[in-house]
Simulated assay, not measured.
Amino acid sequence: MSETEESVPTRDDVQGWSAHKRASVARLLAESIDPPPVAARPLGRRRVVLAVGGVGAVFLLPWLVFLSVTLPATSSGGAWRTVWVGFDVALVAALVATVLTVWLRRQVALIALVITATLLACDAWFDVCLSWGTDEHWGSIAAALVELPVAILLANSAAVLMRRNFAVIALLRGLDPTALPLWRQPMIHFAPTGRSKRMNPAGQAR
């Protein structure tokens, strides 16, 4: 056995360490390991998300005022104005949350990205369907052609962030950090205490 192999602690050695020592070594490893290619920041993606989210929020503010003035209070027995103005208020809030969390580089940006993408897709769907056969039909289609690409951009950005997180976790666990499609990526969790399991490159116990 080489000197390098002898200096590497075994599983039994690590289990004999205190929780504080294990945490300290884990932090040192995290600081010294080079990030995998998939963990590199996508060039320009963050700026695009910030720009699109900011422009969308600014555009929707006067649109909210316009809707609150022009929409009928009720339609077919429902609170028509409340539904649509309330929906757009939620969309503005989601866009602002997305911009702030992406700007601050917080993990909660994943949730904000998914929520905003969902709201944009729903807005496009309802606008097109409810305006079908009216004078506003083509305007709704034009708006949908803007909203849907933005929704795809935000949803894809959330997926990229998730894959980066999984790659970093796999690398710190000593596993293959090769990116996997999210539908094949197992959930990340701690192994049951006291049980030794071997992990394959995908991070699954066997």
Rank of each mutant, 00 (worst) to 15 (best):
S196I: 10
V69M: 15
M1V: 12
T10M: 02
L180K: 07
R164A: 08
L113D: 01
D135H: 07
A93P: 09
A202Q: 12
R195K: 13
C122K: 07
S140F: 00
R106V: 07
V114W: 14
R163K: 12
V55G: 07
L29A: 09
P35Y: 01
W132N: 05
A112H: 05
N200A: 12
V99P: 07
V25N: 06
T193L: 11
A155V: 01
L91S: 06
M187L: 15
T10D: 06
I152F: 13
H20R: 10
D12A: 14
A121W: 10
I33K: 00
V168T: 02
E5T: 15
R163F: 01
H137T: 12
D123H: 08
V114Q: 04
A30G: 03
G77D: 05
R184T: 14
R206Y: 09
L171W: 01
L180E: 00
F190N: 10
A26L: 05
D135Q: 06
V150C: 14
V14T: 02
P35I: 08
T4R: 13
N156M: 14
R163G: 00
T70L: 15
A51I: 15
L50C: 04
R11C: 08
A51N: 12
L161C: 06
L113H: 03
L100Q: 06
P62S: 04
W125Q: 08
